[in-house]
Design a protein around this nucleic acid. Structure first.
Lengths: 219, 219, 219, 219
DNA sequence: CATGAATGAGAATTCATTCAT
DNA sequence: TATGAATGAATTCTCATTCAT
């Protein structure tokens, strides 16, 4: 508790340890869900002792809140970049959904655990907050599109939530097994994307060419 | 030896107990997720001892499989009735989604359990089966609508999953707190319904009047 | 508790029930050991309810004490008859051991459970008493044989216990699997018999012919 | 990461704890059989928490397998040394039995566990193995004695089992209470020893003097 | 600061025994 | 008297958290 002689070197080391713990937790959740991510296992994966975890996080719940928050922040940043980018609202929505879905398919278990798996109340609350953050991105896009006359008037809260729910189900639900060919994954992504775009009221969804996708969507 | 006292009265009492256990489990899951629904808590909620639970269900896992199955069977029946009823595919899809959403907003929020923790393998398997059952109803409707020229060609598996996911999220997600006015609930229901109908490619979703609704949709 | 109108018919019926319970318990112990012989299982096997067991026996422990005692009494009677019968001490010891071993091999699991398997303290105490009863038969024979000059002087308590222990091990121990040919069982019986007879000091054990055996040993 | 504190001191402490657990289990089994030796009781006897047991042993069954194995290994080593030592087969058999019996009479009455309840399958299997190991020592001695013409031809499997059974009964049976004078213990030991030696066919068992015993038998 | 052994509060499940019907 | 549903204490094992080294 007393800050005696905390050199920059030590500071760095501590930050590195903290990150290692977060990474370890994330890895384990992705591998086997929260159920498998016990403190002891996280510590082992991080190359630390279980006691050490409590130097960096006050409890298991707070650790996983941080893991979740960190994981989601990256996604949000990417979505925000797309939403703030060039193009019509329709184009940006299309890209955003596609990017979101595509990235989620890469680490399905992490997405699964954090989107769907309940945990302690604290973690659960964080999960809800994260879903809201995702929804907000889409909500902003919807508002813009409606203002621009691209989409019909609608309950943007509901539509945003529906978008998040739609791809979540399509990804973690029964039709989304982990072992799929790239091609079939592509088709799934496109299907979900088109579903969402149609849902907001675009009668003829655009289908970006590969080139368009490459240049605009990083995810 | 002789069935001295296997009276209809007792028979009734047993059935009532079984139902009380199922209801208690359902209530607890709705309240705090599977995590909070321990055998002891379920027993207390049902007004029985924990040992008694095992007279009616061989294990915790099987109890919750039954809870899920029972809850879902009711919904599926109603959805099936609507899907098999009169009207265009568009009309029936509209009604089905609306009915589904409306019912879920009532009563304990069991929908939550559908995306809940993978818990024991047995429960998880049941969860997946249930989601697929829901999806199948919508899938059939979609196929009919496409055949009838009402909806554009699309990946019906993905679209069905998206519909299930969309309303699930809208119900259990951040925008669906239990304490809302009837009016705002109605608006939410209509928003989700319209989202889904648009999503399958109907450019101008119908908005059934209250009278139409009353006469056709029971949920 | 009050003896109101206990007809002879009822009396008979109660005795029959009691015996059925004892038989059921014995059967179950023989089948799977005390571990498998729960009150509920005994009741089912006896065609009664578990509550009924407590009309006839005050507790599980006392039931099994009775089962044990009854099972052992039969054996003791047979052994006593042999011991009190004709022939030299050596001949009678030979027959007694052989009879004992032979009968035990018929229901190996019952013998096993009651000779070897510990249980509640009460049952355990009864088990000890039974072993002593067996030992006493041999002890008497030993004393007679020593008095007659057939056996050398020895600690008859120890020798009697050793005889009981010797065949117990040979029967329930690793070399006594249940599935054996009659012939190999016969050889085992003879080996144990000869071991015991030699052990008490008979230098050249007799080997009774089949005829001798048939006529003298009932077991 | 770095093994900061894996000091020899801690290493020692862990080994001591492990041994304390084994000793505690052994004590409890000797006192009241496997039935009384629950994890909680073992932990208390060892001065640890029940959770700590699982740091040293993966399950209750494996703990007791280890208890049995450890107890038996010591005995087998001593018996083997005697069997491989100098002297005629008769002399060595005499010493082996005596040593075995003598040691069993000391210390906690673990011999009991050798005929104890089939408990978990794992423990049971270990129990059978241990009995066979004891039997094998005697079997080898018997074979040598027969080859040397000291003992008559006989079923060495049965005889070996009988020897193990004889002293087991004499030790754990009704005639062997723990509270006896040294003198009466000595007499019991000699009686059992002579019984076994006679049993394998030695007509005039030797009775080693105290001096012979001291010099040859350590147990 | 790091370690990991130890803790101990649960959690699911079993089963002898009781008691209302 | 017989029934068998209900009880609840007991048991094994888990794992987040603490703390002596």
């Amino acid at each position: 508790m007393r800050n005696y002689k905390r050199s920059p070197l030590m500071e760095e080391r501590l930050a590195a340890n903290r990150q290692r713990i977060l990474d370890a937790a994330r890895t384990l959740v992705a591998r086997g869900g929260l159920r498998e991510a016990q403190i002891g296992a996280v510590a082992a994966e991080a190359g630390l002792s279980s006691g050490a975890i409590y130097r960096y996080f006050p409890s298991k719940a707070e650790l996983f809140v941080d893991v979740l928050t960190e994981a989601v922040r990256q996604e949000i940043e990417i979505l925000d970049a797309i939403a703030a980018g060039p193009g019509t609202a329709t184009q940006r929505l299309t890209l955003a959904v596609e990017s979101f879905v595509r990235r989620a398919l890469r680490g399905p278990n992490l997405a699964y655990a954090f989107i769907a798996e309940p945990a302690e109340a604290e973690v659960d609350a964080a999960r809800i907050r994260c879903r809201m953050m995702f929804g907000d991105v889409f909500k902003r896009l919807l508002k813009e599109g409606i203002a621009a006359g691209e989409f019909p008037a609608q309950n943007v809260d509901a539509s945003a939530a529906c978008i998040v729910g739609a791809y979540t189900e399509a990804l973690v639900g029964p039709i989304a097994p982990a072992t799929r060919s790239t091609r079939s994954q592509d088709r799934l992504i496109e299907s979900v994307r088109d579903f969402c775009v149609r849902a907001v009221g675009v009668s003829a969804p655009i289908t970006p060419t590969a080139r368009t996708r490459k240049s605009a969507a990083k995810g």
